Amino acid sequence: MLNQELLSDFMNSFLGYGDLSADTWFIGMEEGGGNSLEDVQMRIGTWDKRGRRALEDCAEYHHAIGKGHLFTPPVRAAQKTWDWLIRAQLISEGKPFDISASKMMQCERWLRSDSKTCGLELLPLPSPNVNV
C-alpha cells in the first residue's frame, strides 16, 4: 500500500529531470514505468530517500532505481523516447546528431543536474503506456 502522504508529496512536488536553466525544456505527459504497484512504490521511495527534489538528475536517479544501464558507457541502444529529443537538443546546439552522438549525450549529460537539458512531466506518476 502506498503511503498517502508520500504519494501526495510526490505528485505535488516532482517535476521531472535535469536543469531548469536549460534554454529548451522538453515537456512530456509522464515518464515511462509504473508497470506494477511495487515499481511505483520503489520509484517514489527512491525520490523520498534522495531528498524529495523537484528535479532529479536523471542518470543518478535511474542508477538508484536499477535502470543505470541507460547511462552506463557504452550505451548499447538509445532509449527510444529520448532519442529524437536528444537529437533535437543536439541540433539546437549545432552539434552532430547521428545515433552515436545521441547515445553519447544520453550517457554523459541528458537530463542531468547542471547539464543545460531539462525534461518535465505534466502528470506526476509513471505509466507503462498512454492507455494506463
Rank of each mutant, 00 (worst) to 15 (best):
L20P: 15
L122Q: 05
D39C: 02
L120N: 02
V40I: 07
K116H: 11
N12E: 11
C58E: 03
L70W: 11
F26Y: 15
T81F: 14
M105N: 03
S21A: 09
K116M: 14
M105A: 11
C107P: 01
Q106H: 04
V130N: 15
G16D: 01
Y61D: 03
Q106D: 01
G33T: 00
T81E: 14
Q106M: 09
T46A: 07
K49M: 02
G68P: 11
V75A: 02
L120E: 02
G18I: 08
Y17L: 10
C118I: 00
K103V: 00
I27W: 02
K80Q: 13
G66R: 06
W25H: 14
Q41H: 05
F71G: 04
W82Q: 08
L85I: 06
I91K: 14
L123R: 15
L15W: 08
E108L: 01
T24C: 10
P124M: 06
L125G: 05
M1Y: 06
L55W: 08
R87L: 01
A22H: 06
R112E: 07
P126A: 07
R50I: 07
C107S: 13
P73F: 03
R112Q: 03
W84Y: 11
S92F: 07
A101Q: 11
H69L: 04
E121R: 08
P128I: 06
I86V: 15
E38K: 11
P96V: 04
Q89K: 00
C107H: 07
T24F: 13
R109Y: 10
E93F: 13
A101H: 09
E30A: 12
A22D: 02
L15C: 11
G33H: 05
C107M: 07
S8A: 10
T117M: 00
T81Y: 13
Q41L: 12
P96R: 09
L85T: 03
F10L: 09
R87T: 04
S127F: 08
M104S: 15
C118L: 06
A54T: 10
E38W: 06
L55C: 07
S115N: 01
L7M: 12
L15N: 05
D114K: 14
A77H: 14
D114C: 10
S21N: 10
F71L: 02
K103A: 00
D19L: 00
N3M: 05
F97H: 14
T46E: 08
T46Y: 10
T81A: 15
K116L: 13
L37N: 08
S92G: 09
E5M: 07
N129K: 01
F71E: 07
K116C: 02
L37V: 10
L6H: 10
E5K: 09
I86D: 13
H63Q: 13
Q4T: 13
V130Q: 15
D83R: 06
I27R: 12
E38R: 05
W84S: 12
D23W: 04
R112V: 06
E60W: 00
K95L: 14
S102A: 15
R43E: 13
H62G: 00
W47V: 03
S8I: 04
G45L: 03
T72P: 04
R53I: 03
D83I: 02
R109K: 02
I99S: 11
I86A: 12
G33I: 01
T81V: 15
P126D: 05
C107I: 04
H62Y: 08
S92H: 05
S36W: 13
G119P: 02
G45T: 08
D114W: 00
P96T: 08
P74A: 04
H69M: 05
S127T: 11
A59W: 06
L37E: 11
R52N: 02
A54L: 08
L111I: 03
